[in-house]
Design a protein around this nucleic acid. Structure first.
Length: 597
RNA sequence: GCGCUUGUAGCUCAAUUGGAUAGAGCAUUGGUCUACGGAACCAAAGGUUUGGGGUUCGAAUCCCUACAAGCGCGCCA
């Protein structure tokens, strides 16, 4: 089914073109902020009038005369300097609702007719270090983008660009070797890989710090670590086995967090820095051949135009250090080539915090200079702000350390458990557990999603779990109430399935029904804008409006005790609201819903 | 010094990218409900959108300027 906004945009734009003879005068159809101006409004007439240097209201009159919208709207009205205000007819609304209702999977939303391949680079944890709160935003915002774009019908390729390569690995491998051989003094690694696989690293953070301490205190150890880096780069079998073990152990720490967050990343999506290790030399070589890379202060650099350093001199994009080692700019260039050439990306979306903005600008500029991308390929850096503590400073533990993501999520669940216990002590222990998980994790994710991603935001358990206002529990609650109605129906001799199946026409008897209906048909628009701008908060704002609209309806209209002629519409509205909320939360935001809470 | 981001109600945040009277939630005040879940609903009050200029039918949004905060600016990622 075509989106209503698209239909209106198309028809009104055509009418404008007919009257003005100008091809590029979009109707600019949007949802009216104030219902007294109608449901939708077209703002494009003023701009068109300006172009033609004519009176906008008179122009609007002429356009309206050409408009064919009888099947959708009441007679359009002109207001203010030249707005065209539209009010949706009940007949259109009810037909539209029935169509949406008939589509069990996609709620009447079409897939795109121009599918693209979109690569999304997000999460990117550092191996050998626990995920901390700084990883939360990239991980869940990226995931939401994937889910939305995929739902639109594009091919999404997730790329978890994990930090699994680099000099710190020499240190880690050397340390792991020390520990392993301490416990297996006669160990012969070649024949003893199984033993290594069973060798646990319980506390990654501690392991890393111990290795670092050894590195700093012992010259012998430091030499060993450097040797390991070399062996790693030369892919020596035993060293690779140790490296693999650290990577695997690390995965066993972050994969459960993905599952807890219902993030769609799997090990299939991992393509870490190590993957590009053998492609880096060529990156530098090609850039040298194209005379884009030059030596400066011993390092190999590209100087894309428009970037200056403190002294006002051109700023380098360093692709090889003076000691000959490659660095993240090199890896990112190799990754970009791979994504364009091998993955056939039409669009690459990077989800990292705003501090890296300049790096990505230079990356994109360099890739373009090299001819590795062109204007046909969209390169987008989706930035986001910092999570702050209630004091307005970067979010830390009381002692000033970084907050581990695992701890944060556990605390959220714990706090949610307390609330469930208070509100609904009679549920079974299993139910309470499930609800606490859904509510606690949902609250953390939703609080993040509902902010404009570019602004820093203050993280507060009390706010997000207050469960009032624009929060996950508010929507989960709306959903649970609908489910409760369904459960009660049987006891009141209402057969929902058969009543819904029999509906061929709908009649509204209450404004709350109509208002809710108008919200329901806007879902497609909310997804479209949220996906286009990579802004999950547009989606949460919609879902909140919808849940509010439902609460008003719920308050104003009885469902099960309604008259036989009113009940089918209301049952349908309940069902459709539940399906929309569920779809938005679970499919697009990755937040669980519960039948009871 | 240059650049990026930000500055909106007492607090936490929106504002579909230039649209009409800047919206929510919390907190405050008052109200609704013997219905299907009160984690609800309705209403009041709260604003010179940091200050000052400008652009135009129209500005929180664009331009200039001052102020304030955060971040980035050669071999970490």
């Amino acid at each position: 089914m075509k989106s209503l906004t698209d239909i209106l945009e198309h028809r009104i734009s055509r009418a404008i073109e007919k009257v003005t003879g100008q091809p590029d005068c979009p109707a600019l159809v949007g949802i009216s902020k104030n219902s007294k101006f109608g449901d939708y409004q077209a703002n494009g007439v003023m701009a068109a009038a300006k172009k033609l240097k004519t009176n906008p209201r008179q122009l609007a009159e002429k356009i309206i005369a050409q408009l064919e919208l009888d099947d959708i709207c009441e007679a359009p009205e002109i207001a203010g300097p030249g707005f065209i205000n539209l009010r949706i007819k009940d007949s259109f609304l009810t037909e539209h609702l029935l169509e949406i209702n008939a589509d069990t999977h996609r709620l009447g939303i079409d897939k795109t007719d121009k599918p693209q391949t979109v690569v999304v680079d997000y999460s990117g944890p550092n191996i050998a270090k626990q995920m901390h709160v700084g990883h939360l935003r990239s991980t869940i915002i990226g995931d939401c983008i994937c889910r939305m774009v995929e739902f639109q019908g594009h091919t999404v390729i997730r790329q978890n660009h994990i930090g699994d390569w680099g000099t710190q690995f020499g240190m880690l491998i050397a340390y792991l070797g020390e520990k392993f051989y301490a416990e297996n003094p006669d160990g012969d690694l070649q024949s003893d890989l199984e033993k290594l696989k069973a060798f646990p690293i319980q506390n990654l953070e501690q392991f890393y710090q111990e290795a670092k301490a050894r590195f700093d205190e012992s010259e012998d150890f430091a030499d060993k670590a450097r040797e390991m880096v070399l062996r790693l780069h030369n892919q020596k079998t035993d060293t690779m086995a140790f490296w693999q073990h650290i990577v695997d152990e690390s995965r066993s720490h972050y994969q459960p967090i993905y599952e807890q967050l219902t993030v769609t990343l799997t090990s299939e999506d991992e393509r870490g820095e190590s993957f590009y290790a053998d492609k880096l030399a060529d990156v530098v070589e090609v850039l040298k051949q194209k005379e884009l890379a030059v030596k400066s202060e011993g390092a190999m650099c590209v100087f894309p135009e428009g970037f200056l350093n403190k002294e006002g001199d051109p700023l380098p994009f360093i692709i090889r250090k003076s000691d000959g080692a490659f660095l993240y700019a090199t890896t990112d260039l190799a990754a970009l080539r791979f994504r364009v050439n091998e993955l056939k990306a039409n669009k690459v979306i990077y989800v990292t915090d705003a501090r890296q903005a300049q790096h990505f600008q230079m990356l994109f500029a360099t890739a373009k200079l090299a001819g590795w991308t062109d204007d046909e390929i969209d390169l987008i850096h989706v930035t986001f702000g910092t999570m702050l503590g209630t004091d307005g400073k970067p979010f830390k533990t009381r002692t000033g350390g970084t907050v581990k993501l695992k701890d944060l999520l556990e605390e959220a669940i714990q706090r949610a458990t307390a609330v469930v216990e208070e509100k609904n002590p009679d549920l079974s222990e299993d139910q309470k557990k499930d609800i606490a998980k859904a509510v606690g994790i949902g609250a953390v994710k939703y609080a993040d999603y509902s902010n404009n991603r570019n602004s820093d935001y203050i993280f507060s358990f009390d706010k997000m779990l207050a469960m009032e206002g624009n929060t996950a529990p508010y929507m989960q609650y709306a959903y649970a109430r609908i489910k409760s109605i369904e459960r009660k129906a049987a006891g009141k001799d209402v057969d929902i399935a058969s009543e819904l199946a029999g509906i061929t026409t709908l009649t509204f008897t209450d404004n709350a029904e109509k208002d809710l209906s108008k919200m329901l048909i806007r879902y497609d628009q909310a997804i479209a804008i949220a996906a286009a701008e990579c802004r999950p908060n547009y989606l949460t704002a919609y879902l909140y409006d919808l849940a509010q609209s439902f609460s008003r309806f719920y308050n104003a209209c009885t469902v099960l005790k309604a008259n036989a002629d009113q009940r089918p519409v209301r049952l349908l509205l309940c069902d459709l609201t539940a399906r929309t909320i569920k779809h938005g939360l679970t499919e697009l935001l990755g937040i669980k819903v519960v039948e009871q809470m």
